[in-house]
């Protein structure tokens, strides 16, 4: 395996559709909840320890080789609103396209055949990481980082936030990122014995509520 594959997978330029998604930042900016670097950091910390943690567990479990269809069901059970399920599958389908071009393999082919409309993105990312020879913890890192880098990039575009400040926010969240990635990987390591119940199920009520509100906006810059 090559650890450097993680840099390719986690690169913001990896062409898997993430650039058009704000991870809930667009409605939070509109509501005045994100208005500067301080409030962006608070938002990202909340998102990381909820949606990010769930994604980290799913990605790590998929990278460990657990049945991606069971993990996809587990992702559905952990995503209580259709706007976020649809977004996760859309991004999963786009991740699948990019992953099959970069790290082709039978696991990706099988998942693409079983879920032609897309599996949840963290599950696809985990299978892609496995196909790239990466470890479960690597997959957890990649997905958790993307979970906060998306909103940070969106805030730069939506608020004309100083990009140095936004990047400093991500740097300040590094310790939280370590913790979340490790929690996700630890939980994934228990799946063999305990099943998918071992995976984190952290919920974020406002992300769920505002995702549906945002999906109903007639005019928006980001797809989610």
């Amino acid at each position: 395996m090559s650890r450097a594959a993680l840099l390719v997978l986690a690169d913001g330029r990896f062409p898997a559709g993430g650039h058009a998604h704000s991870g809930g930042a667009e409605p939070a900016v509109a509501a005045g909840h994100i208005k500067d670097a301080v409030t962006l950091e608070r938002f990202c910390r909340g998102r990381l320890h909820t949606a990010g943690l769930v994604a980290a567990g799913l990605a790590a479990a998929a990278a460990a080789g657990h049945d991606p269809l069971l993990l996809d069901d587990a992702a559905d059970a952990r995503t209580p609103v259709p706007a976020l399920r649809t977004t996760a599958r859309k991004l999963g389908r786009q991740m699948m396209r990019a992953a099959r071009a970069t790290w082709p393999g039978p696991d990706l082919d099988a998942l693409a055949a079983a879920r032609p409309r897309g599996a949840h993105q963290p599950v696809v990312l985990g299978v892609a990481a496995r196909s790239a020879g990466l470890e479960p913890l690597d997959a957890a890192y990649a997905v958790a980082y993307e979970n906060i880098s998306g909103p940070a990039t969106a805030a730069v575009r939506l608020l004309s936030l100083d990009p140095f400040d936004a990047t400093a926010v991500l740097a300040r969240l590094a310790a939280d990122l370590d913790r979340v990635a490790q929690q996700g990987a630890d939980a994934a390591a228990r799946v063999a014995l305990e099943g998918t119940d071992a995976l984190p199920a952290a919920s974020a009520p406002l992300l769920d509520i505002t995702a549906e509100a945002h999906a109903a906006w007639p005019v928006r810059l980001f797809a989610s």
Binding site: H19, A20, R157, R220, L221
Partner: peptide
């Protein structure tokens, strides 16, 4: 939707 970056959506991603 292009996330405020229309050229990205037709060229880079």
């Amino acid at each position: 939707e292009t996330g405020a970056c229309p050229h990205t959506a037709i060229r880079d991603d």
